[in-house]
Design a protein around this nucleic acid. Structure first.
Lengths: 222, 222, 222, 222
DNA sequence: CCCTAAACGAGACGGTACGTCCAGTCTTCAC
DNA sequence: GTGAAGACTGGACGTACCGTCTCGTTTAGGG
């Protein structure tokens, strides 16, 4: 993950020829790790910049030199967790989907993820820049998995190739929102576990719906 | 909406004979209204108790006498908005579902709702009491709509009567998480509009999936 | 001591025929006692009306019905302590004076007195009504002792009779300020004990000065 | 005036090499000046830390970083006023003493002094640290004047040299309490003016007493 | 091998909100 | 109409962080 950092010269020379003391990469790592630890212990609302600085053995100024505020810092700290999400290949679409759902649920069950996800999203409702940051750091990372999964299922012949590229894109978005939404809502709002039984029923529902989506719309004229 | 308030005797005598000056009901109304206004203007994180008190024309102490903190206050203030959610009756399950999805999306599109929902849920990840409050004030209120919708569809013959009551309950939960999750995710995370076209595709997906759910599970033995 | 109380009808009928429930004299006593106890425990600045009310088993309203505020209450509560000050009769002016000094010092050494005296006086620097209350309740009570002491010494022939009544009054004031001032300053400002040795030296100083006061002023003509 | 400040390292290195931003000396001056102004306008009990901060154009935190509370702040603010007390030299002990009394009275008559002195002393009855602060900042400053005055009178031959150094110290304390006590009591408790006539009578009393103090104690054996 | 310029730690700065406490008033019921 | 109880407005309290600032001190190239 390479987040674009606050007040960083956007594009450095290929050879970093900026004068002066370079920024400490160790500090970056220490700060992000400290942020995750603090998130688990304190939760979003009680996490403070000062506290993170202390934990990371770093001055507050160093934080502010790199991130504009708490939200930005937390997004970067959490984003790396989503790197581990990978599409499993178990040979069939339902099996892959079910495994994917369980992996996503496991990720959302980790304290640092569950605590920060909703809070960051909430902050983003009033902050377009933050929304973009979340999208590039987290959401898009998940969305490609949907596209990969569909491509693989089409190769296997489990799904037809959609002719209209626009419809294809819309459907991918729809399916992404359904999967991620259902798992997030189950985990964080309903606060009930995504166990294999639930994942199985959900997969059946989704596979069945997917099939009917590819048929001609019965509500619309022939 | 009847919120359980901070430090209130849970059930008073039928004749309220507590000594001392009774609490002002007008203050309650003013505070909740002020909270909603402030939410719209400032968003969750910049909303302060002091500001709410000032807007409501009430002393800060009066707020703290009734709510333990910002989260509790906001849950109560927002909960009332969910009262307006009602199940439409358009004659068919797909039509009803589509309308319902649009209504829910419209509600989540209102600034006070979108701003506060996620934030409150985020707070709740670390607070069991708050989680209960949200569940009773908001989540359960929506869940009954799913049950009503299913019952009506069964009366119409659009859905079969499930024999096993446990499976019935689980499926209702599943469907609730899928609907609410998809709409919430689309609205707040993907940050794209739930327009009639999206609602229509989503409804087709869900109705199709619903049908396959009621069939015998092809993955399990005959 | 019967202080004139806040909002009391100044003069009641000989037969108390006021309508309604009469005030509880027990409450008065309890309040003043509670005030003294609280003063010892908490000191002036941390003593609160609410706390006194609780200790006295009385509602806050009852306090405010009788005293206008903290200062007034404390003056009344402390004034009674000064009732015990009496002029000793040991047969000679120096002996009486020395004993008097030690008694006054002992009174000022009691926690409730030392804590409240200065505080009340401090409040009074900005409040004429309070100043009158202190004067009548405390200061004048001490000043008569000076007058009594002089009269007795004159009867004994230890002091001459001053011809000019105005000079007599001024000198009594002067001597009062010197005695009370020295003891108060030693006790509360210098914060050192008024022990018999100090009292003895002070008495010698004062008696000697008194003698020179009654002589003709060497600074003034013939 | 050198006040010992809250949480200050008592003695820094000769070269101030403490890390971090140094404290603003200008802030100190502004705060103490604002405190004196506020004292005059509002009096001790209505003076608030917030108000002082606002007047000084300084944040409340800056006050609390330097002084532990209202009492400490006021002591330092007032202490500087006592710097102006100087021993006059008019050629004779009675003249010097009379002038000194009038100067002290004039100082105690200034609103900021009269309002705060007693209140601070009252607070100090329950606070040893505050008592020490008052002593070093105010009381000792006055006591040296007594010692200076005595030394000068001895040089002039107006007073004998005391043989026993302990007796000398005790007598200085006694005289200090008598002078300061009488003036303070007259000014603040009796609330009557220290005019030249009073100062003259008081001086006569004290000079006379002083003379008798240096004689052999008639009460004690030869 | 120093020079230069930025990054660093430390911590004070002006602010804002916190949640608590108390003042003094008002409202209700019981006696 | 007094008394107890307790909710009310209002405002200061002292604390905690915020994000900025001003220091003196590293620390790495580049000359």
């Amino acid at each position: 993950m390479v987040a674009v950092m606050h007040s960083h010269p956007q594009h450095r020379d290929v050879q970093n020829t900026r004068p002066g003391r370079p920024r400490s990469a160790a500090a970056d790592r220490a700060i992000l790790a400290a942020t995750r630890t603090a998130l688990v212990e304190l939760g979003w609302s009680k996490l403070t910049m000062s506290d993170v600085a202390t934990r990371a053995g770093v001055a507050k100024t160093t934080l502010y030199r790199r991130w504009a505020g708490k939200s930005e810092l937390v997004v970067d700290a959490v984003a790396v967790l989503f790197d581990e999400l990978e599409l499993p290949d178990l040979g069939s679409l339902p099996a892959d989907l079910e495994a994917m759902v369980l992996r996503l649920a496991a990720l959302l069950d980790r304290p640092e993820t569950r605590t920060s996800m909703m809070a960051v999203v909430a902050e983003a409702t009033r902050d377009e820049a933050l929304r973009r940051r979340i999208r590039s750091a987290i959401v898009d990372r998940q969305k490609v998995l949907v596209l990969e999964g569909r491509a693989r299922a089409q190769e296997r012949g489990e799904l037809p190739y959609e002719k209209d590229p626009e419809t294809a894109a819309h459907d991918a978005d729809l399916i992404f929102d359904v999967i991620a939404g259902a798992v997030v809502h189950r985990t964080l709002v309903s606060a009930e576990p995504v166990d294999p039984a639930w994942a199985h029923r959900f997969t059946r529902l989704l596979i069945g719906g997917l099939a009917s989506l590819t048929q001609r719309d019965p509500h619309q004229a022939p």
